Simulated assay, not measured.
Amino acid sequence: MARGLPEMLVWDILSKLPVKSLARFKCVCKPWSSSFQTPLFITQHHLTNDHLNLLVKRCDGPNFSDLCYFSQLSTEKGQNFSPRQNIHLPVFEIEYYNHFVTVHGPHNGILCLDFDANIICLWNPSTREFKVLPQSSIQRPPLAADTSFSGLGFGYDSQTDDYKVVRFIDNAFEYHCYGNSYYLETTYQVDLYSLKGNSWKEISDPIIDRGVNVRDTTLLDNYVNGFYYWLATAPQGYIILSFDMVNEMFSTLPLPEFDGGFEQCHLHLLNYNGLLGASVYPSEGTLKSFDLWVMNGFWTKQFSIESVPGVERPLGFWKNGELLLDSSDNELVLFDPSTREFKNLGIHSYKEPLMVAYVESLVPINGRSEHEEHILFYCQALRQSMCNMS
């Protein structure tokens, strides 16, 4: 321990340091290096440090083959969200998956990267640990003509200290009749991945059996206090589907009663200060308005942003309830609901932006460093390519 300082004070100071500093301090002494990896210190560090980071998905151009990456923006006062570093992950360099990534989380600093639900990765951007999830061995119906993925969710089970991924699978059956004509019938399956078990299992639920299916248009994080939420379709129309990460059960909620319906508006679910929120905005027009609804026993409209020129869609909330927006020119805009002021950040997000705010974390995911995972991923891709050629 540091000479002249009480041990408890030293650990209190260390728990507030950025992960990058702790990585350097591992070489100070063996007790420090081993203590930084204990569950007690990892939990204390995540709860006490306030190093909020901002990641934005960017792309070098509008074309399908243009390389995508994450930019970590500087959030220090006076630095105006300038790009601090660019992070290139191995899957981003595979052309097919370049534009299809959706980010779920963070939960305790862990992100889930969903590449069209075909390749799913967990990533700790603070420690740069990266894990590609194993393929599911769950059997699909043998007569299914086509199998596709319709949605995904990522959450935390506080009871077992486990991270879980929920994935929806559509199995389409083709029936021929009257010569060449045919019709399709679809059944739904739900896979659940557990990080602790590093395995998938099938979830059966009567709500899913009744034909409820998700419409995964996720731009924002839909995980709130142990539940993940999706916009879904049911025989009676649109609803909200929720999944309890602890009890592993589904339930449903009604939608807020907004004007225009889905013919004229987009609706995205989000986490608003620990409550389920819904952002509603017009799908057409250059003059946009945004309504934020919040569920606290029933839906209430939290605030409205009226007649905003040149703004395309919401990306998420920042400190003090500020809302980050994407402009029609793909520039990042910050809106303060308390002052009703807009600030153009001068950051070009390029095509299909994604924004993630996360607090630094030491939480391990039993993966590899980005460099090791990069080598492994390309070895697997090369083997698959050779198999396809043979």
Rank of each mutant, 00 (worst) to 15 (best):
A2H: 04
R3N: 12
E7W: 01
V10G: 00
V10I: 11
I13P: 08
A23G: 10
R24D: 09
F25W: 12
K26R: 15
C27W: 08
C27I: 09
C27A: 08
S33H: 04
F41D: 14
N53F: 02
L55C: 01
R58C: 10
C59P: 03
N63S: 08
F64A: 14
S65P: 11
Y69S: 14
Y69K: 15
Q72W: 05
L73R: 05
S74E: 12
R84D: 15
N86Y: 09
N86C: 06
H88G: 02
I94M: 11
Y96A: 15
N98V: 12
N98Q: 15
T102F: 00
I119G: 00
C121N: 08
C121D: 04
W123K: 13
N124F: 04
F130V: 12
P134R: 01
Q135C: 08
I138W: 01
Q139P: 07
L152S: 03
G153L: 13
S158V: 01
Q159Y: 03
T160V: 09
D162K: 04
V165G: 06
N171C: 14
E174W: 01
Y175S: 08
Y175H: 05
Y175M: 05
G179R: 10
N180G: 10
T186V: 13
Y188K: 09
Q189W: 02
G197L: 10
I203M: 03
D205L: 08
T217Y: 05
L219G: 14
Y223G: 03
V224D: 06
Y228R: 04
I239E: 07
I240Q: 03
D244W: 09
M245E: 00
M249Q: 15
E257V: 03
G260H: 03
F262C: 07
F262V: 07
L267G: 03
L270C: 15
A278L: 06
V280F: 01
N296V: 06
G297H: 06
S304K: 03
S307V: 07
G316D: 01
F317N: 04
K319V: 12
N320A: 13
G321N: 06
L324F: 10
L325F: 02
S327E: 09
S328A: 05
S328C: 07
N330A: 11
F335H: 15
S338N: 03
L345S: 12
G346V: 13
S349D: 01
Y358I: 02
S361E: 02
P364Y: 07
E370S: 07
H374Q: 09
L376H: 04
F377R: 08
Q380S: 03
R383P: 04
R383N: 10
Q384T: 06
M386L: 14
M389R: 08
S390H: 04
